[in-house]
Write a protein that binds this DNA or RNA. Structure first.
Lengths: 242, 242
DNA sequence: TTGAGTCTGTACGCTATCGAACAGATGACT
DNA sequence: AGTCATCTGTTCGATAGCGTACAGACTCAA
């Protein structure tokens, strides 16, 4: 229901000053984000930037043999397409819709123009970029040191934070692709969580029943990323960049 | 031998326009980088930025239990301290000297002033940041999918690219800390490489004998990071930002 | 209602890596 | 020359995750 969408649902857009909002908002286009849609392909020039509202976008790297691993996830707290203002125009990642919903998109050229015109906008983008960097670094650490069980908890929490409901539409196969593990590994881990009463799994629908337990079972990586994101991008009064 | 050091040995400093060089270089201080020195600690404010010449700096995350994993490595192609212009002032990583040498350092405040004054400088920093992001993302992928053998090859190549000689001063214990694996795992992998005649290991000194073979045995991750870094930061005529 | 397709659960052997313990080799220092 | 700390090599059992295979359960559409 696009009617209920407003640009302010995206935290970055909401944080912009009235002046920047006035210049940018007229060019925003509300775009549906169906599950599985590919926004960017590795190495391809990015023509738009995307500000998710209720959708979740995965940044993942696809190896030569087709296996993949998620390096970061983007929801209403962020944006997809930082390569545009970073100057690289493309990245080695694929951006994939992980949870269906909507996002506002803006032509890349206009975005770049506005970034170079407004210091505020640039500084906000930079802080967000740092939060994204933290997430990638932590993903690397997590991939090295933590069990699938812990990583599943982390991943569920990251997704949950970007949704307004406690239910995810997501098959175990897809989660496995994100985490870069086998589907069976996810089945095992999810089975254990279900037995503990933390989640309820039902054919592509996960309902989180006990978020506190989930945080407790997760590795430290979730908390580190959350704390750093909150530090770098505190929720501000809509319409100001604080 | 600091006499032979010039700021231009760092590629980023070399790429700056004459104007920016004139403003910045007087404030650069050549600082020794002894093995094991900690430049930044996780969460602590960063007071200087560092431009390595012949030293190599590891960015690594240290977990609550003390185990660690490297997320990126910085040499003469880059700088340490991007959080300063990103606006976060600190990061969740520790910056540690991985290979002794020198670096030019600049007070953080001055760096920030110059970045805000010169668009060129900012754009260069942004492109470098994107290269760093690529490296972190690829580290995450590599940690998930590749064997210790492959990762050791990748790591040796990344180090080699940042040194002017084909010898690294580095114990297996330290490499293990960087890769986030056991020391014995590194011993095994290095033993195999030695048997193949690719490297020669001798009490904290690794000599690379056959770089081509090393590249062949490495996973794709090294090539991906190298290609993207070269794309984002092509070697330019010293003194221009192209 | 029935069948096809999709999703989840389970089993099995295999391998890489871990954790712990220890032995030998080397180089630095006295 | 002898001592000691450090570095490297090796072993052993334990285990997490992989690859493969397949069965049952659910959904949707014909």
């Amino acid at each position: 229901m696009p009617d209920t969408h407003t640009p302010q649902k995206n935290h970055l857009l909401a944080a912009l000053s009235a002046e920047v909002q006035e210049r940018i908002f007229p060019f925003l286009e509300l775009a549906p984000m169906p599950l599985g849609k590919v926004l960017y392909e590795s190495g391809a020039a990015e023509h738009h930037v995307y500000f998710p509202t209720d959708s979740i976008i995965s940044l993942l790297y696809v190896m030569e043999n087709g296996a993949s691993a998620e390096t970061a996830v983007v929801g209403d707290e962020g944006m997809v397409g930082i390569a545009l203002f970073m100057g690289g125009e493309s990245t080695t990642s694929r951006a994939l819709v992980q949870s269906a919903g909507f996002a506002y998109r803006l032509p890349g050229k206009r975005f770049k123009d506005e970034v170079s015109r407004h210091g505020d906008l640039l500084f906000l983008m930079l802080r967000y970029s740092q939060a994204l960097i933290t997430q990638m670094a932590q993903t690397a650490v997590c991939n090295r040191h933590h069990s699938i069980d812990q990583q599943l908890c982390r991943w569920l929490l990251l997704s949950l934070d970007r949704l307004s409901v406690n239910q995810l539409v997501m098959t175990q196969e897809l989660i496995a692709n994100m985490l870069g593990v086998r589907r069976e590994g996810v089945t095992d881990a999810a089975g254990r969580l279900q037995k503990e009463g933390v989640i309820e799994y039902h054919r592509g629908r996960i309902t989180v029943l006990d978020r506190a337990k989930l945080e407790q079972l997760s590795c430290e990586c979730y908390a580190v990323v959350k704390a750093e994101t909150d530090r770098l991008l505190p929720r501000v009064q809509p319409g100001s960049v604080q």
